[in-house]
Design a protein around this nucleic acid. Structure first.
Lengths: 353, 353
DNA sequence: GTGAAAGCGCTAACAC
DNA sequence: GTGTTAGCGCTTTCAC
């Protein structure tokens, strides 16, 4: 590596060309790996590149090409482990194919989601991985459709007539949760979630309910779905318990719900699993270190990312055909927050920790 | 909005120009807000833009300009709340100034960090916000320096002779933690951390130690610093407690350490704060819902992001002068995990829950 | 095998 | 006031 006290203008392909005594076109060919270049010249080009520390300008390069080697990723938020991992995976997969990932957060706003998409369209990204705020029927997907963008929908989606979709198999996971809870003897379960993310929540709910009822038709399943945000959910929950409802287990359909449930338990001095059991959709690192550890459904982030990118690149490369709707299997992690009812439920919040 | 069944080529500035009956240059001027354009023509341009749904191609635009309106952000990871929030903030601040943020994760690897930086350099980003894996003396900062890139260093940094730095005032926060713990009567405290992130950890450690010793010179402060990763820390901690060491409080200098401490407590059946107190650097959402809630130092993410972007843009706009080293104040959130020693320490892990 | 020429979509001088 | 010209740095025919 030559020691360049670099400042100002970086060497361009023409600098390399003149130093190697060839034309810019030849340099471009050498870099593209075209074999028809005389080995001797190729070597001189490589030498010049090395000496100058030359690197192609991806912008200029993309400018000329048909497709730009940029993938856009739109997530509802960056703050959670799930989407953090997702972006990390997507970034790495995009890189592997020589693409740059440009990630943006819609901050749980459909309006912003559409704006971001418009901006990505301006950038003429080759493809988009969209994790919609709500579901596949939002304005963002419509925008993509209307503008002929190529993309894949992930996470809060079930299936779409225009785009491939990839998400966790929530229904199957929920069914497994049902089997576990019923198996442990629970016959009164509260399910909490956010109605806004309609399709996915429905799947999780139905998966749980049908399996639970199949196992024991007399089981009682209460459901609290908050419309938009998490705070109303907290209020409803507080109200629900305040009315004297005493399910033996709570299944939260989303991470924030798990947090809310825990804090409400805490408020009442209930402990898991003696006073009540808890399972949450979505795992988090802290769940295995709390007292007790919280049982959770682990989403296959990596699988979703890999599958999404595979599908996306297939479309980018021009593959036609009906959109597919993939469901990747989850893993249910049993932990101590789930026990059998009757081992001292609601023993009165003995306040030892 | 005209209903365009968009496919293939988007309208270019020339399409707008010909439709408006002016030249491309005029369109460009109108969009740039130049006032010397005849109002009538300006109007026709606006109309054409609207009818065609025209939007500038930022790539092409940046291509021609001197500086590209792209800011690179490099974080050690995306999975934690802290960096997730940071990216969200940075993205929003960049947008406000008409820039696009391209975020990348170095995945805690200095080697990868340098590669990413090289790629950002290829992109000719206007500036970089770098949260280094280790500290300001790593290869990434050196690369930036050698290539005359403009940037700001954040988080795991103290000060630098080439770049502005912004980080949380760990020392002051740690001093406050010391005041609190000593104030509660703790005279034997274990501090845990990662040695790799040298400078910041030192600052936190020194801040704590000097304040604690100032308050009570006889206080005993044990320190466990794992070299590189968190797992050895767990082993050391297990060993430490296994030897029969019984501090009345633990101060973890990093989030993962807090998790490790909790899980080790748990393994031994200890509960906070009765058996041992715990404070961690870095807050997380779950910490307020566990039993008990975990006391934590909250980093001023937003302030750091704002300050970093201010400094960065000032440099981008050509401001010269000595690099500054900013420290933003933290907030110490007292929660139930901290109590007074002697209220039943090590009472023997009564295994309720 | 290689280079000249054209041009991706835009903006900035500089004429007119 | 506005259009012409000349690129930004690259890739891609298409002659030679």
């Amino acid at each position: 590596m030559a020691h360049r006290e670099a400042r100002q203008r970086r060497p361009s392909i023409h600098d390399v060309a003149s130093r190697a005594g060839v034309s810019a076109a030849t340099v471009s060919k050498v870099m593209a790996g075209v074999t028809t270049v005389k080995p001797e010249n190729a070597q001189r080009v490589f030498d010049a590149i090395e000496q100058l520390g030359y690197r192609v300008d991806p912008l200029a390069s993309d400018m000329r090409r048909a497709k730009r080697r940029i993938i856009g990723a739109i997530m509802p938020e960056f703050e959670s482990e799930f989407f953090g991992q997702m972006v990390t995976q997507l970034e790495s997969l995009a890189e592997q194919r020589g693409y740059t990932l440009v990630a943006a957060s819609s901050r749980e706003s459909e309006e912003r989601e559409k704006e971001i998409l418009a901006r990505m369209h301006d950038w003429r990204v080759a493809g988009v991985v969209l994790a919609p705020v709500r579901n596949e029927h939002g304005p963002a997907a419509a925008f993509m459709k209307a503008n002929g963008m190529t993309g894949v929908l992930i996470d809060r989606v079930l299936s779409d007539d225009a785009f491939d979709t990839v998400s966790a198999d929530s229904a199957a996971a929920s069914a497994e949760v049902a089997r576990m809870l019923v198996g442990k003897g629970h016959r009164h379960v509260l399910v909490i979630g956010l109605a806004e993310q309609a399709a996915t929540v429905r799947a999780r709910l139905d998966g749980f309910r049908s399996q639970a009822l199949a196992l024991d038709p007399s089981i009682r399943i209460d459901v609290i779905l908050s419309e938009v945000s998490v705070e109303p959910l907290r209020a409803s929950l507080r109200d629900y318990f305040g009315r004297g409802e005493r399910p033996t287990a709570v299944y939260s359909l989303l991470l924030k719900g798990t947090l809310v449930a825990l804090s409400e338990f805490r408020r009442r001095g209930w402990h898991c699993p003696n006073d009540i059991s808890l399972v949450g959709f979505d795992d988090a690192e802290w769940m295995q270190v709390t007292w007790p550890a919280i049982a959770a459904v682990v989403q296959p982030v990596r699988q979703i990312a890999i599958e999404a990118m595979n599908l996306l690149f297939r479309r980018i490369e021009g593959e036609e055909g009906q959109p597919t709707a993939r469901l990747e299997p989850c893993q249910v992690l049993m932990r101590e927050s789930v026990g059998s009812p009757g081992n001292g439920p609601h023993s009165g919040g003995g306040d030892r920790q």
